[in-house]
Design a protein around this nucleic acid. Structure first.
Length: 878
RNA sequence: GGGUCGUUAACUCAGAGGUAGAGUGCUUCCUUGACGCGGAAGAAGCCACAAGUUCGAAUCUUGUACGACCCA
């Protein structure tokens, strides 16, 4: 084994081995509980980014852990067709060849997209493999495969038949570049600097006027009303009157509506129902006419009269100019307002009225809220529950039609003869009403999220009553970022409840975003993204996984730091070398029975500590506290196992006079390393498999090993406490060595004065530990010193005093300084404990054990102070 | 405007009602037979501010400031 761990030599090999061994496939053991996760499907043409890496690492940790615990475990992978995103990319590539999708026609274009999908479809899944994802590739799905498409069809028809899907003219968000409707949540709002124009609208047959304020003057061409607040005294007399729309000449009413904000602008607003969502609502309430003045590419249309053909911003300039010329423009203020942008292409979205398909949300939202409120679905961390319920409670109908070609075509046909509308599971051949075969399918496709919403059950075989549905549904947990709670999580919840009668998952584990080192979102435009493949290439997947997980609070964002990656790489190397050491010393090892009475103090200590760690780590995992769990393993391996246990084991390993010692230590090293490697496996699957496969007594794969279970019988609290004393002693002596620059070669003598017989016995029995680890030549143990040596440095610990005679080396002055500093610390501690013990409230109300602890501490501090004072006296006495 | 999160050592972050933690960095020292991607020791924090609850608050409550994000 090489002394530096090389992940490149290891990772690919084991992944192939696991796949070939079918170790990712569920055990199928129905006597065990199931554990299932459906993977949030990445965009089929996408590339792995750090967000995916984090998301899938979490899922893989949970999956590997539960699998080891014996659950019938399924992690189902797949990809999403990502309608608008994929179509845009294919269009771009066509544009590079100088052709548009219209040149190819719908069929031809779709062929190109499928080609594209075949070309790039494997890339992201291959990248997921590089991460070590233990998902069942035999069940891999795609949102547009046959089964998912059938589920989409079924759901659409059911909702349609229930009256929950309708088609209508409503205001939607229109992207003038993508030339499609997009849903509310696909619009991103950003503040931008604009103006507020104050415009005079003259009253009909009067020389009076109202002043309206607007940020989008060009939309006035479509105004069909002016609104004021019903309780606004200023305008009360005007309500019911008519104004003459400037430039256009249309006569439109002034009406009162509580939506109007009296503080905004002049308190009177122009109402354009065809180009503003709020105006649209008011239009419905007051039966206003809809005047659409824009074409799909955001140019003015024929309803804009002389402005027809102008781009929306040119039209704005022209309208303003004309208003000014006509004396209608009274004032222009600077004004900041939020503008909606297309999530996909960042174009400013235009609210427009158009004929689209919608899902009626209120009836679906209600049960979806209940299941979360009553705890059938649990968000982790819990605070995301409110994010979800707030959104669900204020939900609006979901616009599901998209004017795209790539996606699930809406299963609705229009009879050209009689106008019948047919919504059907099977493609109809004749009109059921007039038997005509002149049927034309709706041109639109469904929002990508319509199919994603069905993912937890469409992938398991729904609508059939499949084995997988029965065995793995509802799924156990959904792991995803908080950025798609609305897009996806919410929609899966109401869809699952509506169509399967059950929640789609029991728990939702929300994690944060990965940010760059400066705390900014990683984005293409900033160019601050880090490619996970680069990290894997340089440091290995185990390192990437562990560095993203460890020391992270669930739900919080994570800054990506190369420093941390390096530190984790060092950790991997540390484990590697610890294993190398163990394996090197196991070459002559054959398993033997080792009696409990043969175990040394250090053996009993490490066994006990291991049990405690197993219990902690298991319970942290159950609570989704992966960061803390990882940190505990890290500490245990590096600190307790490597820095202490292995060091303590060395002398016994190499002592020719005690051959049995070597066997015992070998046994313990082997057993503890085996458990460590299992505990670490979900986090770092590759290196742990590699080590495991080198350990004597290994099975076919570590993946099939049982997760360690804490054995309370092995927790020897005495051994743990005793080791603590020895370790404290070793540290104190090392400290002295460092302070006095005593080189390694310098053998020192240490006198231990231990008044308690138990402590003295401990040092008599295990003085070897101190001698070896603190490099002590002679260790003398006494109850008490008649006369403490003057030419000696001391460490006065609560349980014993340690003297290192340094005739000729010690600088008395320096030593006194050292002791005085310690005295100051002790004095502070005493002041603190005294303050508590002198507080009657504390004595009366604090739990007795806390008071007792405080008393003990005070007493101990008092004794140490006494000792320190004496020591100073001895040293300063001339 | 509403909401969520954050503010802890120089930096990046854990923690959490009862003596402030890690990693990196910094200062010494160490070619000890796993690892210098290592080991030992050390310096370094009024846990943002204010009020409250409590015997006791960095931790709970409320408010303030600053920062990030989400929704309108």
């Amino acid at each position: 084994m090489a002394s530096v761990y090389d992940p490149g030599q290891v990772e690919g090999k084991w992944y192939d081995y696991w796949k070939q061994g079918n170790f990712f496939v569920p055990s199928g053991d129905l006597s065990q509980p199931h554990f299932s996760i459906v993977m949030p499907p990445p965009n089929v043409t996408g590339q792995l980014h750090l967000g995916h890496a984090l998301d899938n690492t979490i899922q893989d940790i949970l999956t590997r852990w539960r699998r080891m615990q014996g659950y019938n475990t399924l992690w189902l992978p797949g990809t999403d067709h990502a309608g608008i995103a994929t179509q845009a990319r294919v269009e771009e590539s066509l544009a590079a060849e100088g052709i548009s999708k219209y040149d190819l026609g719908r069929e031809g274009f779709l062929e190109r997209v499928w080609e594209w999908k075949r070309l790039y479809g494997d890339r992201i899944t291959q990248q997921l493999s590089l991460l070590g994802s233990s998902c069942d590739w035999s069940r891999e799905r795609f949102t547009m495969d046959e089964g998912c498409s059938r589920a989409v069809r079924e759901v659409f028809v059911r909702l349609y038949e229930k009256g929950l899907i309708y088609r209508g003219d409503y205001i939607i968000n229109w992207c003038p570049r993508c030339l499609t409707a997009i849903s509310d949540i696909e619009v991103e709002h950003a503040d931008s600097d604009g103006h507020l124009w104050h415009i005079k609208y003259p009253l009909q047959d009067s020389d009076q006027f109202v002043i309206v304020a607007t940020t989008r003057p060009e939309t006035m061409l479509g105004d069909t009303g002016v609104a004021v607040h019903p309780e606004d005294e200023r305008y009360r007399p005007l309500v019911g009157q008519q104004v003459v729309l400037p430039l256009v000449g249309r006569i439109i009413p002034i009406f009162a509506d509580p939506y109007v904000d009296r503080e905004f602008g002049t308190g009177a607003v122009k109402v354009t129902p065809a180009h503003d969502p709020n105006d649209f609502e008011m239009g419905l309430r007051h039966d206003l006419e809809l005047v659409n003045v824009m074409s799909p590419d955001a140019h003015m249309n024929e309803n804009a009269g002389p402005y027809a053909g102008l781009d929306r911003y040119e039209a704005r300039r022209q309208v303003v100019k004309d208003l000014e010329a006509g004396g209608y423009l009274l004032q222009v203020e600077d004004h900041q307002h939020a503008l909606g942008h297309c999530q996909r292409c960042d174009t400013i979205v235009e609210p427009m009225v158009s004929l689209q398909w919608f899902v009626k949300m209120k009836p679906l939202a209600q049960p979806a809220i209940e299941k979360v409120v009553n705890g059938e679905i649990q968000f982790i961390p819990e605070r995301f529950t409110r994010v979800y319920t707030n959104w669900m409670e204020n939900i609006r109908d979901w616009c599901i039609s998209r004017q795209l070609w790539w996606g699930h075509r809406i299963p609705v046909w229009y009879c050209q003869e009689c106008g019948e509308i047919i919504c059907s599971r099977q493609d109809p051949v004749a009109c059921p009403s007039c038997a005509s075969s002149q049927l034309v399918q709706d041109e639109d496709v469904l929002d990508t999220w319509f199919s994603s919403a069905l993912w937890p059950f469409s992938t398991l075989g729904w609508p059939d009553d499949s084995d997988d549905m029965r065995h793995f549904y509802p799924t156990s947990v959904l792991v995803t970022g908080r950025d798609i709670i609305f897009f996806w999580v919410a929609r899966m919840i109401f869809s699952g409840i509506e169509h399967t009668g059950q929640v789609p998952f029991r728990q939702v584990n929300i994690h944060g975003l990965i940010l760059d080192a400066l705390g900014r979102k990683m984005s293409k435009s900033l160019g601050n993204g880090v490619d996970p493949l680069e990290v894997i290439e340089k440091y290995g997947a185990d390192t990437l996984r562990f560095s993203m997980i460890t020391g992270v609070t669930p739900g919080n964002d994570i800054r990506f730091q190369w420093d941390k990656v390096e530190n984790t790489r060092n950790f991997a190397n540390k484990i590697w070398n610890a294993a190398r050491f163990v394996l090197m010393n196991l070459e002559d090892y054959s398993p033997v029975e080792v009696g409990r009475d043969e175990l040394s103090l250090a053996d009993r200590w490490i066994y006990g500590r291991l049990q405690l760690k197993i219990a902690e780590i298991t319970s942290l995992l159950a609570d989704y506290e992966l960061g803390e769990a990882a940190r505990r393993i890290y500490d245990f391996i590096w600190d307790e196992f490597c820095d202490w246990y292995i060091e303590l084991a060395k002398p016994r390993l190499f002592s020719p006079s005690q051959p049995r010692d070597r066997v015992v230590v070998q046994t313990v090293l082997h057993a503890v390393l085996m458990e460590i490697v299992k505990l670490l496996h979900p986090f770092m699957p590759f290196i742990t498999e590699e080590i495991y496969q080198n350990l004597p007594g290994h099975g076919p794969t570590i993946m099939l090993e049982a997760w360690p279970q804490a054995d309370p019988d092995r927790i020897d609290t005495d051994a743990i406490e005793q080791m603590q004393l020895l370790m404290a002693a070793i540290r104190a002596i090392r400290n002295i060595r460092a302070d006095f620059n005593l080189s390694h070669g310098t053998a020192i003598k240490v006198i231990v004065a231990a008044p308690e017989s138990g402590v003295a016995d401990l040092f008599r029995a295990n003085g070897g530990y101190v001698q070896d680890l603190a490099r002590v030549g002679e260790l003398a143990i006494v109850d008490r010193l008649e006369e403490a040596p003057r030419q000696a440095v001391s460490a006065l610990l609560p349980f014993a005093e340690f003297y290192v005679p340094l005739e000729g080396i010690i600088d008395i002055h320096k030593e006194v300084g050292r002791l005085e500093k310690e005295l100051r610390n002790i004095d502070q501690e005493i002041a603190k404990t005294e303050a508590k013990l002198n507080n009657p409230g504390f004595l009366a109300k604090a739990p007795p054990e806390v008071v007792e602890k405080e008393r003990a501490r005070a007493e101990e501090a008092g004794q140490r102070r006494e000792g320190l004072l004496q020591r100073v006296q001895i040293l300063t006495a001339e």
